[in-house]
Computed example of a mutant assay.
Amino acid sequence: MSEIDFTTATAEQIAAVEPHEFIRIVKEMSDKDVKQVMESPNREAIIDAIFRRMPELFRPDRAGSTTATTHWSITGRPDGGADEWTVRFADGTCTTVPGHDGDATLTLAMTPVDFTKVITKSGNPVMMFMTGKIKAKGDLGLAANIANFFDIPKA
């Protein structure tokens, strides 16, 4: 596959990028490059593609009997707002919906750069929380383990 430029790709092209390819591309990007992409018109398409892929990468064997509703806020939108998503774990499944839906067991807020580090496993979420890069409220044990619920492809 030819290299995709996330700043100029269409939403359809972004959605078609396989998870392992997405991870590889993002891991090769500098923080400055990630920030630039996440300030581009494609920010919404990229975040949408990430959250919509979460159920595909979910590993129920790792989540066990976890039942939780997590609210995610990816800050730094050009209009000053945040992209918000709900990720639920119940009965061995993972579902995602745009917006904050229902009562959260865990609320997470982070910049787009820190978000990409979390979802590519190139950052340590516990250290990111301890240094204030991730804001978490609620079940902090879940926050420390949530990345393990997913089979993140190696780049």
Score class of each variant (00 low, 15 high):
T70W: 09
F89Q: 02
A147S: 12
T10R: 13
V118N: 08
R53S: 12
E21V: 14
M1D: 15
T107N: 05
A143P: 05
I47R: 10
W72F: 11
G102R: 06
N148L: 12
G64L: 02
D91F: 12
W72Q: 09
A15N: 11
D5S: 08
G76A: 01
N148F: 15
R59I: 09
P112N: 00
P41W: 01
T120Y: 04
G81S: 08
R52H: 15
G64Y: 14
M127F: 03
M29Y: 10
V17N: 10
K117I: 00
F22I: 05
T7I: 11
P112F: 04
W85Q: 02
R59Q: 13
Q36P: 05
F58G: 04
T105I: 04
A63M: 03
T95A: 11
A16Q: 12
H71N: 03
S65C: 14
E18V: 13
A82G: 00
T95I: 11
R77E: 00
A45G: 10
G99E: 06
I23L: 07
G81R: 00
G138C: 13
R77Q: 01
M29F: 08
I25P: 06
S2Q: 15
E21T: 09
F6T: 01
V34M: 04
L106T: 04
P78N: 11
A136D: 03
P153S: 07
L57I: 13
T75S: 06
T8D: 09
T7H: 12
R62C: 11
P60M: 02
I47N: 12
E12K: 03
A155W: 06
A11H: 07
T8R: 13
E18I: 12
M130A: 08
T10M: 01
T93F: 15
K117C: 02
P55A: 14
I46C: 08
L108R: 05
D61S: 14
I50C: 05
P112W: 04
T67E: 15
G141M: 08
I134M: 00
I146S: 09
A147M: 07
E56H: 13
I4K: 07
T66Q: 06
I119Y: 12
